[in-house]
Design a binder for these strands. Structure first.
Lengths: 199, 199
DNA sequence: AATTTTTATTGAACGATGTTCATGTTTCCT
DNA sequence: AGGAAACATGAACATCGTTCAATAAAAATT
């Protein structure tokens, strides 16, 4: 029953956006009173987090799939991951947006099951990055992986925004691939040359 | 009078966030009935856009200031701009967030005065980038400038999110500076080597 | 100065929406 | 069957943005 609720919420976010998620519509869709929603879930925040968890899992699968065919070099693996992220965001635009639009209250922190999902994404980036930057410590690699992810996320986020100019998706993909390669090349070059000493 | 409204809205967003902007509180703060707000402004969307316009102008000033002292190389200019963007976002967190959180209705497009502001930001990036990548056309440079901005924006956005792990600001600044230098170095290297032929 | 016309202000009211709760209803164990 | 626990109901509450008829103020006209 709760599964039906979450699925209905997922569908509603998918085609009406996070702001289009209404408890009364949900109740009608799964066939119950609006008050009954709160027996299945504490509040809409939890509902959104549960949908987000599903989205993150699908995203994880998409990223896994991206590097599973052929024997891509670490460099090309990272490009593939970035493009897969872009494609996933484009194909699941509203659900993907909901992951970042939703902000929880400051006093009520995220439940554990929600936090754990998010860490997993960097895992995809970490391995190829470790192969490319053998001189870095695990901590440094984790931070760099996060930065790389964030940079690609920014390109996808603003690229799909279409607030001002509509960027066609193929052009966005080219930009992402180009800048990811540039970032990697730059990181590797700085790594062999001796990091901070170069500035 | 309208200026007082916008200023009150700015203050309210600044310390309570975009979601904390309430018309009744605004009316009380500027001393009028809640209905009177709609004589000064069409709706809250316009109000948010007007506040956003002010924020963008201040951001523009901050970025201008970043490259105005000394004679920084194009490469270091870009690093300075990125760090200035990060600092501005950190110091004006809620107002900066409001720029991106707020999504307008699909059928009611942005007014002209709001669209024009946003383009100006890329101008800061364009000039140093043109010096570093002389082989590129103005259109290509514009797109690359946008991508660079987006990448930095992503790092700042996720870095200041603190959704999972709180990244200390100095660490974030280091990451940004490092990755911007890497991106630039990578872009320049790819540029001299002959762009697409390298893949 | 008086009267009319235009403009601005008010605060009650409307419609949504998330959430709660007293009241039924079902389920399930003994 | 009977009682207890869980669940479902939909009306009610609080809080929003927004509207609007009524009213006051101001401006314009005679």
């Amino acid at each position: 029953m709760r599964a039906a609720l979450i699925q209905a919420a997922e569908g509603m976010i998918a085609d009406r956006g996070l702001a289009g998620l209404k408890t009364r519509d949900l109740a009608r869709e799964i066939g119950c009173a609006n008050g009954a929603v709160y027996n299945l879930v504490a509040d809409v925040d939890e509902l959104i987090l549960r949908v987000g968890s599903r989205t993150l899992r699908r995203l994880d699968e998409a990223l896994t799939l991206a590097t599973s065919s052929g024997e891509p070099s670490p460099r090309e693996s990272l490009v593939r991951i970035a493009l897969a992220y872009c494609d996933f965001a484009a194909e699941n635009l509203q659900l993907w947006r909901a992951l970042f639009e939703h902000r929880v209250q400051v006093d009520k922190p995220l439940p554990d099951w929600s936090v754990h999902d998010q860490m997993q994404l960097f895992r995809h980036i970490y391995q190829p990055l470790a192969a490319l930057l053998p001189g870095r410590s695990p901590e440094e690699l984790g931070i760099t992986a996060r930065s790389l992810f964030s940079a690609v996320h920014g390109m996808v986020a603003l690229g799909l925004e279409q607030k001002l100019v509509a960027v066609p998706l193929p052009a966005l993909r080219n930009q992402i691939a180009g800048l990811v390669r540039a970032m990697i090349d730059g990181l590797v070059a700085r790594d062999v040359k001796g990091a901070a000493a170069a500035d």
